[in-house]
Design a protein around this nucleic acid. Structure first.
Lengths: 215, 215
DNA sequence: ACCCCACCTGAACGACTGTTCACTTTGCCG
DNA sequence: CGGCAAAGTGAACAGTCGTTCAGGTGGGGT
Protein backbone atom coordinates (compact mmCIF):
# COMPACT_ATOMS: atom_id res chain seq x y z
CA UNK A 1 0.00 0.00 0.00
CA UNK A 2 2.64 2.42 0.97
CA UNK A 3 4.46 1.86 -2.29
CA UNK A 4 1.43 2.23 -4.48
CA UNK A 5 2.07 4.62 -7.28
CA UNK A 6 -0.41 7.44 -7.47
CA UNK A 7 -0.79 8.11 -11.15
CA UNK A 8 -2.00 11.64 -10.81
CA UNK A 9 0.98 12.68 -8.76
CA UNK A 10 3.49 11.32 -11.25
CA UNK A 11 3.02 14.73 -12.78
CA UNK A 12 5.16 15.13 -15.86
CA UNK A 13 5.41 18.90 -15.41
CA UNK A 14 4.40 21.12 -18.35
CA UNK A 15 7.97 21.61 -19.47
CA UNK A 16 9.66 21.52 -22.82
CA UNK A 17 11.34 18.14 -22.77
CA UNK A 18 9.03 16.44 -25.30
CA UNK A 19 10.05 13.07 -26.53
CA UNK A 20 13.67 14.05 -27.14
CA UNK A 21 16.49 12.39 -25.25
CA UNK A 22 17.61 14.64 -22.42
CA UNK A 23 20.91 15.55 -24.07
CA UNK A 24 19.03 17.12 -26.96
CA UNK A 25 16.65 18.91 -24.64
CA UNK A 26 19.60 20.39 -22.77
CA UNK A 27 21.25 21.49 -26.00
CA UNK A 28 18.07 23.18 -27.18
CA UNK A 29 17.45 24.93 -23.88
CA UNK A 30 21.06 26.10 -23.74
CA UNK A 31 20.85 27.54 -27.26
CA UNK A 32 17.72 29.47 -26.45
CA UNK A 33 18.98 30.83 -23.16
CA UNK A 34 22.48 31.71 -24.36
CA UNK A 35 21.03 33.50 -27.38
CA UNK A 36 18.60 35.51 -25.33
CA UNK A 37 20.71 36.43 -22.33
CA UNK A 38 24.33 35.52 -22.98
CA UNK A 39 26.53 32.73 -21.67
CA UNK A 40 27.95 34.27 -18.50
CA UNK A 41 24.60 35.31 -17.02
CA UNK A 42 22.76 32.09 -17.81
CA UNK A 43 23.18 29.70 -14.91
CA UNK A 44 23.29 25.95 -15.01
CA UNK A 45 20.15 26.04 -12.87
CA UNK A 46 18.38 28.16 -15.53
CA UNK A 47 19.17 25.77 -18.33
CA UNK A 48 18.14 22.68 -16.45
CA UNK A 49 14.95 24.19 -15.11
CA UNK A 50 14.01 25.09 -18.69
CA UNK A 51 14.00 21.41 -19.57
CA UNK A 52 12.43 20.20 -16.36
CA UNK A 53 15.50 18.91 -14.59
CA UNK A 54 17.67 20.07 -11.73
CA UNK A 55 21.22 21.44 -11.70
CA UNK A 56 23.04 18.23 -10.99
CA UNK A 57 21.58 16.34 -13.94
CA UNK A 58 23.65 18.40 -16.35
CA UNK A 59 26.79 16.59 -15.27
CA UNK A 60 25.43 13.24 -16.40
CA UNK A 61 25.69 14.51 -19.98
CA UNK A 62 28.39 17.18 -20.05
CA UNK A 63 31.61 17.58 -18.12
CA UNK A 64 31.00 21.27 -17.43
CA UNK A 65 29.09 24.35 -18.49
CA UNK A 66 32.11 25.22 -20.65
CA UNK A 67 31.97 21.90 -22.46
CA UNK A 68 28.27 22.36 -23.11
CA UNK A 69 28.93 25.70 -24.81
CA UNK A 70 31.76 24.28 -26.86
CA UNK A 71 29.65 21.32 -27.87
CA UNK A 72 26.79 23.38 -29.26
CA UNK A 73 29.02 25.96 -30.93
CA UNK A 74 31.28 23.39 -32.53
CA UNK A 75 28.43 21.38 -34.00
CA UNK A 76 26.78 24.52 -35.40
CA UNK A 77 30.03 25.74 -36.89
CA UNK A 78 30.84 22.39 -38.49
CA UNK A 79 27.41 22.24 -40.06
CA UNK A 80 27.81 25.79 -41.40
CA UNK A 81 31.14 24.95 -42.99
CA UNK A 82 29.56 21.93 -44.65
CA UNK A 83 26.65 23.99 -46.00
CA UNK A 84 29.01 26.59 -47.46
CA UNK A 85 31.22 24.04 -49.16
CA UNK A 86 28.23 22.27 -50.62
CA UNK A 87 26.73 25.51 -51.91
CA UNK A 88 29.76 26.52 -53.95
CA UNK A 89 30.41 22.95 -55.06
CA UNK A 90 27.05 22.76 -56.80
CA UNK A 91 27.25 26.15 -58.47
CA UNK A 92 29.29 25.61 -61.60
CA UNK A 93 32.43 27.50 -62.57
CA UNK A 94 31.28 31.08 -63.03
CA UNK A 95 32.56 33.08 -60.02
CA UNK A 96 29.40 35.20 -60.15
CA UNK A 97 27.18 32.16 -59.75
CA UNK A 98 29.48 30.74 -57.09
CA UNK A 99 29.40 33.96 -55.08
CA UNK A 100 25.64 34.25 -55.40
CA UNK A 101 25.16 30.64 -54.32
CA UNK A 102 27.43 31.14 -51.35
CA UNK A 103 25.64 34.28 -50.18
CA UNK A 104 22.25 32.65 -50.61
CA UNK A 105 23.20 29.60 -48.56
CA UNK A 106 24.96 31.64 -45.90
CA UNK A 107 22.22 34.23 -45.48
CA UNK A 108 19.32 31.77 -45.59
CA UNK A 109 21.00 29.66 -42.94
CA UNK A 110 21.64 32.69 -40.75
CA UNK A 111 17.98 33.65 -41.04
CA UNK A 112 16.57 30.20 -40.43
CA UNK A 113 18.90 29.19 -37.60
CA UNK A 114 19.35 32.65 -36.20
CA UNK A 115 19.43 31.50 -32.60
CA UNK A 116 22.19 29.00 -33.24
CA UNK A 117 24.13 31.45 -35.39
CA UNK A 118 23.84 34.15 -32.77
CA UNK A 119 25.28 31.92 -30.07
CA UNK A 120 28.03 30.56 -32.28
CA UNK A 121 29.16 34.04 -33.25
CA UNK A 122 28.70 35.97 -30.06
CA UNK A 123 29.67 33.59 -27.31
CA UNK A 124 32.92 32.06 -28.50
CA UNK A 125 34.97 34.38 -26.40
CA UNK A 126 33.93 32.58 -23.22
CA UNK A 127 35.64 29.36 -24.25
CA UNK A 128 39.14 28.78 -23.00
CA UNK A 129 41.92 29.13 -25.52
CA UNK A 130 42.33 25.47 -26.41
CA UNK A 131 38.67 24.94 -27.15
CA UNK A 132 38.58 28.09 -29.30
CA UNK A 133 41.19 26.90 -31.77
CA UNK A 134 39.19 24.57 -33.97
CA UNK A 135 36.33 27.02 -34.28
CA UNK A 136 38.66 29.79 -35.38
CA UNK A 137 40.07 27.37 -37.92
CA UNK A 138 36.64 26.62 -39.32
CA UNK A 139 35.87 30.32 -39.62
CA UNK A 140 39.10 30.88 -41.46
CA UNK A 141 38.23 28.05 -43.82
CA UNK A 142 34.92 29.68 -44.66
CA UNK A 143 36.61 33.02 -45.27
CA UNK A 144 39.09 31.30 -47.55
CA UNK A 145 36.22 30.04 -49.68
CA UNK A 146 35.09 33.62 -50.21
CA UNK A 147 38.60 34.90 -50.89
CA UNK A 148 38.96 32.04 -53.38
CA UNK A 149 35.84 33.01 -55.27
CA UNK A 150 36.89 36.66 -55.34
CA UNK A 151 40.40 36.08 -56.63
CA UNK A 152 39.09 33.59 -59.16
CA UNK A 153 36.67 36.25 -60.37
CA UNK A 154 39.43 38.83 -60.64
CA UNK A 155 41.62 36.43 -62.61
CA UNK A 156 38.86 35.64 -65.04
CA UNK A 157 38.08 39.33 -65.37
CA UNK A 158 34.46 39.12 -64.21
CA UNK A 159 35.02 40.91 -60.88
CA UNK A 160 36.45 44.39 -60.41
CA UNK A 161 36.66 45.01 -56.65
CA UNK A 162 37.47 48.41 -55.15
CA UNK A 163 41.13 49.36 -55.22
CA UNK A 164 42.78 51.26 -52.41
CA UNK A 165 45.92 53.12 -53.43
CA UNK A 166 46.15 50.96 -56.52
CA UNK A 167 45.98 47.68 -54.61
CA UNK A 168 43.16 45.26 -53.96
CA UNK A 169 42.80 43.74 -50.49
CA UNK A 170 40.57 40.75 -51.13
CA UNK A 171 40.91 39.47 -47.57
CA UNK A 172 39.64 42.73 -46.11
CA UNK A 173 36.81 42.79 -48.63
CA UNK A 174 35.85 39.22 -47.82
CA UNK A 175 35.86 40.08 -44.13
CA UNK A 176 33.65 43.11 -44.66
CA UNK A 177 31.16 41.06 -46.66
CA UNK A 178 31.12 38.12 -44.26
CA UNK A 179 30.51 40.53 -41.38
CA UNK A 180 27.49 41.81 -43.19
CA UNK A 181 26.08 38.39 -43.91
CA UNK A 182 26.76 37.05 -40.45
CA UNK A 183 25.04 39.86 -38.63
CA UNK A 184 21.81 39.19 -40.44
CA UNK A 185 21.11 36.90 -37.51
CA UNK A 186 21.15 39.89 -35.19
CA UNK A 187 18.27 41.76 -36.75
CA UNK A 188 16.36 39.43 -39.05
CA UNK A 189 12.96 38.54 -37.64
CA UNK A 190 10.82 35.82 -39.20
CA UNK A 191 7.52 37.29 -40.27
CA UNK A 192 9.08 40.71 -40.85
CA UNK A 193 8.93 42.72 -44.04
CA UNK A 194 11.44 40.54 -45.83
CA UNK A 195 11.40 36.77 -46.13
CA UNK A 196 14.52 34.62 -45.88
CA UNK A 197 14.40 34.34 -49.63
CA UNK A 198 14.25 38.08 -50.13
CA UNK A 199 17.00 38.68 -47.60
CA UNK A 200 19.20 36.26 -49.49
CA UNK A 201 18.54 38.02 -52.78
CA UNK A 202 19.13 41.48 -51.28
CA UNK A 203 22.48 40.46 -49.88
CA UNK A 204 23.52 38.55 -52.99
CA UNK A 205 22.71 41.51 -55.19
CA UNK A 206 24.52 43.90 -52.85
CA UNK A 207 27.57 41.64 -52.79
CA UNK A 208 27.77 41.30 -56.56
CA UNK A 209 27.70 45.05 -56.85
CA UNK A 210 30.34 45.46 -54.15
CA UNK A 211 32.80 43.19 -55.92
CA UNK A 212 32.10 44.87 -59.26
CA UNK A 213 30.64 41.85 -61.00
CA UNK A 214 30.28 42.45 -64.75
CA UNK A 215 27.00 41.78 -66.49
CA UNK B 1 57.89 59.55 16.12
CA UNK B 2 55.34 56.89 15.72
CA UNK B 3 53.37 59.04 13.27
CA UNK B 4 56.34 59.97 11.16
CA UNK B 5 55.65 59.48 7.53
CA UNK B 6 58.11 57.27 5.76
CA UNK B 7 58.43 58.72 2.31
CA UNK B 8 59.59 55.55 0.62
CA UNK B 9 56.61 53.60 1.80
CA UNK B 10 54.11 56.12 0.46
CA UNK B 11 54.57 54.18 -2.75
CA UNK B 12 52.36 55.54 -5.50
CA UNK B 13 52.08 52.16 -7.23
CA UNK B 14 52.97 51.96 -10.95
CA UNK B 15 49.35 52.09 -12.07
CA UNK B 16 47.56 53.88 -14.85
CA UNK B 17 45.97 56.78 -13.06
CA UNK B 18 48.24 59.50 -14.48
CA UNK B 19 47.23 63.07 -13.90
CA UNK B 20 43.58 62.52 -14.78
CA UNK B 21 40.83 63.01 -12.26
CA UNK B 22 39.78 59.64 -10.86
CA UNK B 23 36.40 59.66 -12.62
CA UNK B 24 38.16 59.74 -15.96
CA UNK B 25 40.58 57.03 -14.92
CA UNK B 26 37.68 54.81 -13.91
CA UNK B 27 35.90 55.45 -17.20
CA UNK B 28 39.03 54.58 -19.17
CA UNK B 29 39.70 51.43 -17.17
CA UNK B 30 36.08 50.34 -17.52
CA UNK B 31 36.17 50.84 -21.29
CA UNK B 32 39.30 48.75 -21.63
CA UNK B 33 38.10 45.93 -19.42
CA UNK B 34 34.57 45.77 -20.79
CA UNK B 35 35.92 45.73 -24.33
CA UNK B 36 38.36 42.97 -23.62
CA UNK B 37 36.33 40.67 -21.42
CA UNK B 38 32.69 41.80 -21.43
CA UNK B 39 30.57 43.55 -18.83
CA UNK B 40 29.24 40.64 -16.78
CA UNK B 41 32.61 38.99 -16.13
CA UNK B 42 34.46 42.18 -15.28
CA UNK B 43 34.17 42.80 -11.56
CA UNK B 44 34.13 46.11 -9.77
CA UNK B 45 37.32 44.98 -8.09
CA UNK B 46 38.96 44.45 -11.51
CA UNK B 47 38.13 47.93 -12.74
CA UNK B 48 39.27 49.67 -9.61
CA UNK B 49 42.47 47.71 -9.31
CA UNK B 50 43.27 48.69 -12.91
CA UNK B 51 43.33 52.33 -11.85
CA UNK B 52 45.05 51.77 -8.53
CA UNK B 53 42.06 52.00 -6.24
CA UNK B 54 39.97 49.57 -4.25
CA UNK B 55 36.39 48.38 -4.77
CA UNK B 56 34.65 50.80 -2.47
CA UNK B 57 36.04 53.92 -4.12
CA UNK B 58 33.86 53.34 -7.19
CA UNK B 59 30.78 54.35 -5.24
CA UNK B 60 32.15 57.82 -4.59
CA UNK B 61 31.77 58.51 -8.32
CA UNK B 62 29.01 56.24 -9.62
CA UNK B 63 25.84 54.92 -8.05
CA UNK B 64 26.41 51.39 -9.29
CA UNK B 65 28.23 49.23 -11.81
CA UNK B 66 25.15 49.57 -14.01
CA UNK B 67 25.28 53.34 -13.95
CA UNK B 68 28.96 53.26 -14.86
CA UNK B 69 28.18 51.22 -17.97
CA UNK B 70 25.33 53.47 -18.96
CA UNK B 71 27.46 56.54 -18.44
CA UNK B 72 30.26 55.45 -20.74
CA UNK B 73 27.95 54.05 -23.41
CA UNK B 74 25.67 57.08 -23.46
CA UNK B 75 28.50 59.55 -23.81
CA UNK B 76 30.08 57.53 -26.62
CA UNK B 77 26.79 57.23 -28.45
CA UNK B 78 25.97 60.93 -28.14
CA UNK B 79 29.37 61.85 -29.51
CA UNK B 80 28.90 59.45 -32.43
CA UNK B 81 25.56 60.96 -33.31
CA UNK B 82 27.12 64.41 -33.28
CA UNK B 83 29.99 63.31 -35.53
CA UNK B 84 27.57 61.79 -38.04
CA UNK B 85 25.35 64.84 -38.21
CA UNK B 86 28.32 67.11 -38.64
CA UNK B 87 29.77 64.95 -41.41
CA UNK B 88 26.70 65.10 -43.62
CA UNK B 89 26.04 68.73 -42.78
CA UNK B 90 29.36 69.78 -44.27
CA UNK B 91 29.12 67.66 -47.41
CA UNK B 92 27.03 69.71 -49.81
CA UNK B 93 23.87 68.55 -51.54
CA UNK B 94 24.97 65.67 -53.75
CA UNK B 95 23.76 62.41 -52.11
CA UNK B 96 26.89 60.66 -53.34
CA UNK B 97 29.12 63.13 -51.52
CA UNK B 98 26.88 63.01 -48.47
CA UNK B 99 26.99 59.21 -48.32
CA UNK B 100 30.75 59.14 -48.82
CA UNK B 101 31.25 61.73 -46.09
CA UNK B 102 29.04 59.78 -43.71
CA UNK B 103 30.85 56.50 -44.31
CA UNK B 104 34.22 58.14 -43.94
CA UNK B 105 33.33 59.76 -40.63
CA UNK B 106 31.62 56.64 -39.31
CA UNK B 107 34.35 54.21 -40.28
CA UNK B 108 37.25 56.41 -39.21
CA UNK B 109 35.64 56.90 -35.85
CA UNK B 110 35.03 53.18 -35.43
CA UNK B 111 38.69 52.51 -36.24
CA UNK B 112 40.13 55.19 -34.02
CA UNK B 113 37.86 54.64 -31.02
CA UNK B 114 37.44 50.94 -31.53
CA UNK B 115 37.43 50.12 -27.85
CA UNK B 116 34.67 52.59 -27.10
CA UNK B 117 32.66 51.53 -30.14
CA UNK B 118 32.98 47.89 -29.22
CA UNK B 119 31.63 48.45 -25.75
CA UNK B 120 28.84 50.74 -26.90
CA UNK B 121 27.66 48.21 -29.45
CA UNK B 122 28.16 44.95 -27.64
CA UNK B 123 27.30 45.64 -24.04
CA UNK B 124 24.03 47.55 -24.22
CA UNK B 125 21.99 44.50 -23.48
CA UNK B 126 23.14 44.47 -19.85
CA UNK B 127 21.45 47.77 -19.11
CA UNK B 128 17.99 47.65 -17.64
CA UNK B 129 15.15 48.62 -19.93
CA UNK B 130 14.75 52.24 -18.87
CA UNK B 131 18.41 53.05 -19.36
CA UNK B 132 18.41 51.42 -22.78
CA UNK B 133 15.76 53.69 -24.28
CA UNK B 134 17.73 56.81 -25.10
CA UNK B 135 20.55 54.82 -26.65
CA UNK B 136 18.16 52.96 -28.94
CA UNK B 137 16.71 56.33 -29.91
CA UNK B 138 20.13 57.67 -30.84
CA UNK B 139 20.85 54.61 -32.96
CA UNK B 140 17.57 55.04 -34.77
CA UNK B 141 18.42 58.67 -35.43
CA UNK B 142 21.70 57.68 -37.04
CA UNK B 143 19.96 55.09 -39.18
CA UNK B 144 17.47 57.70 -40.28
CA UNK B 145 20.31 59.87 -41.55
CA UNK B 146 21.40 57.04 -43.82
CA UNK B 147 17.87 56.27 -44.97
CA UNK B 148 17.47 59.98 -45.70
CA UNK B 149 20.56 60.09 -47.88
CA UNK B 150 19.48 56.97 -49.74
CA UNK B 151 15.94 58.12 -50.52
CA UNK B 152 17.22 61.53 -51.49
CA UNK B 153 19.60 59.85 -53.92
CA UNK B 154 16.83 57.73 -55.37
CA UNK B 155 14.60 60.80 -55.86
CA UNK B 156 17.34 62.70 -57.61
CA UNK B 157 18.09 59.66 -59.75
CA UNK B 158 21.73 59.27 -58.71
CA UNK B 159 21.23 56.05 -56.71
CA UNK B 160 19.78 52.81 -58.00
CA UNK B 161 19.64 50.39 -55.06
CA UNK B 162 18.85 46.69 -55.44
CA UNK B 163 15.19 45.87 -55.91
CA UNK B 164 13.59 42.81 -54.39
CA UNK B 165 10.41 41.71 -56.12
CA UNK B 166 10.12 45.13 -57.72
CA UNK B 167 10.38 47.02 -54.44
CA UNK B 168 13.21 48.79 -52.70
CA UNK B 169 13.63 48.38 -48.97
CA UNK B 170 15.86 51.30 -48.07
CA UNK B 171 15.61 50.64 -44.34
CA UNK B 172 16.89 47.09 -44.72
CA UNK B 173 19.65 48.29 -46.98
CA UNK B 174 20.65 51.00 -44.51
CA UNK B 175 20.69 48.41 -41.77
CA UNK B 176 22.88 46.06 -43.76
CA UNK B 177 25.33 48.83 -44.54
CA UNK B 178 25.45 50.18 -41.00
CA UNK B 179 26.11 46.66 -39.71
CA UNK B 180 29.08 46.45 -41.97
CA UNK B 181 30.50 49.81 -40.92
CA UNK B 182 29.89 49.22 -37.25
CA UNK B 183 31.63 45.89 -37.10
CA UNK B 184 34.82 47.40 -38.41
CA UNK B 185 35.60 47.90 -34.74
CA UNK B 186 35.58 44.16 -34.24
CA UNK B 187 38.44 43.35 -36.56
CA UNK B 188 40.31 46.53 -37.43
CA UNK B 189 43.74 46.61 -35.83
CA UNK B 190 45.88 49.75 -35.87
CA UNK B 191 49.15 49.02 -37.58
CA UNK B 192 47.57 46.36 -39.78
CA UNK B 193 47.64 46.21 -43.54
CA UNK B 194 45.08 48.98 -43.96
CA UNK B 195 45.14 52.40 -42.32
CA UNK B 196 42.04 54.11 -40.97
CA UNK B 197 42.09 56.24 -44.08
CA UNK B 198 42.21 53.24 -46.38
CA UNK B 199 39.50 51.43 -44.44
CA UNK B 200 37.28 54.47 -44.83
CA UNK B 201 37.86 54.58 -48.57
CA UNK B 202 37.29 50.84 -48.99
CA UNK B 203 33.97 51.00 -47.21
CA UNK B 204 32.89 54.20 -48.92
CA UNK B 205 33.63 52.74 -52.33
CA UNK B 206 31.85 49.49 -51.46
CA UNK B 207 28.82 51.41 -50.20
CA UNK B 208 28.55 53.60 -53.30
CA UNK B 209 28.59 50.49 -55.43
CA UNK B 210 26.00 48.77 -53.25
CA UNK B 211 23.52 51.61 -53.61
CA UNK B 212 24.14 51.82 -57.34
CA UNK B 213 25.61 55.32 -57.38
CA UNK B 214 25.89 56.67 -60.89
CA UNK B 215 29.13 58.20 -62.11
C1' DA C 1 12.02 -12.06 -7.53
C1' DC C 2 16.18 -9.92 -7.75
C1' DC C 3 19.82 -6.67 -8.89
C1' DC C 4 21.81 -3.46 -11.91
C1' DC C 5 22.70 0.69 -13.87
C1' DA C 6 21.63 4.83 -15.99
C1' DC C 7 19.54 8.69 -14.50
C1' DC C 8 18.02 12.12 -11.43
C1' DT C 9 17.62 14.79 -6.88
C1' DG C 10 18.81 18.44 -3.75
C1' DA C 11 21.75 19.68 0.04
C1' DA C 12 26.28 21.16 0.60
C1' DC C 13 30.92 23.36 -0.62
C1' DG C 14 34.03 27.04 -1.39
C1' DA C 15 34.71 30.78 -4.24
C1' DC C 16 33.29 35.02 -5.82
C1' DT C 17 29.76 38.81 -6.64
C1' DG C 18 27.88 43.99 -6.04
C1' DT C 19 27.25 46.91 -2.42
C1' DT C 20 27.59 49.07 2.26
C1' DC C 21 29.87 51.24 5.99
C1' DA C 22 32.71 52.74 9.88
C1' DC C 23 36.94 54.46 9.64
C1' DT C 24 41.24 56.76 7.86
C1' DT C 25 43.66 59.62 4.74
C1' DT C 26 44.27 63.61 1.86
C1' DG C 27 44.42 68.36 0.30
C1' DC C 28 42.77 72.78 0.84
C1' DC C 29 40.51 76.70 3.36
C1' DG C 30 41.22 80.44 6.76
C1' DC D 1 47.86 75.27 13.00
C1' DG D 2 42.66 73.44 13.26
C1' DG D 3 38.97 71.75 10.74
C1' DC D 4 36.19 70.20 7.14
C1' DA D 5 34.72 67.95 3.08
C1' DA D 6 35.92 64.96 -0.50
C1' DA D 7 37.94 60.62 -1.45
C1' DG D 8 39.88 56.01 -0.40
C1' DT D 9 40.19 51.70 2.52
C1' DG D 10 39.11 46.95 3.38
C1' DA D 11 36.30 44.06 6.29
C1' DA D 12 31.76 42.45 6.19
C1' DC D 13 27.08 41.11 4.19
C1' DA D 14 23.82 38.51 1.84
C1' DG D 15 23.51 36.30 -2.48
C1' DT D 16 24.63 33.47 -6.27
C1' DC D 17 27.72 30.70 -8.94
C1' DG D 18 29.65 25.99 -10.90
C1' DT D 19 30.43 21.70 -9.25
C1' DT D 20 30.27 17.51 -6.21
C1' DC D 21 28.20 13.73 -3.98
C1' DA D 22 25.54 10.52 -1.08
C1' DG D 23 21.35 8.86 -1.75
C1' DG D 24 16.81 7.84 -4.32
C1' DT D 25 14.13 6.08 -8.34
C1' DG D 26 12.43 3.18 -11.97
C1' DG D 27 12.60 0.10 -15.86
C1' DG D 28 14.79 -4.16 -18.10
C1' DG D 29 17.42 -8.47 -18.04
C1' DT D 30 17.70 -12.84 -15.91
Amino acid sequence: MSKRKIAVVESAPPVERDGRPPVEAIRAAAFAQFAERGYPVVTVRDIMKACGLTQGALYNHFKSKDELLHDIIASTQAELERVCQQAVAGAGNDPRARLAAFVRAYVVRHCRLRVEALVANREISWLDADRIGDIRRSRRAIREIVVGILSEGVEKGVFDPPQIDGKRDLKALAMALLDQWTHVSMWYAPGGRLSEEQMARLYAETALRAVGAKA
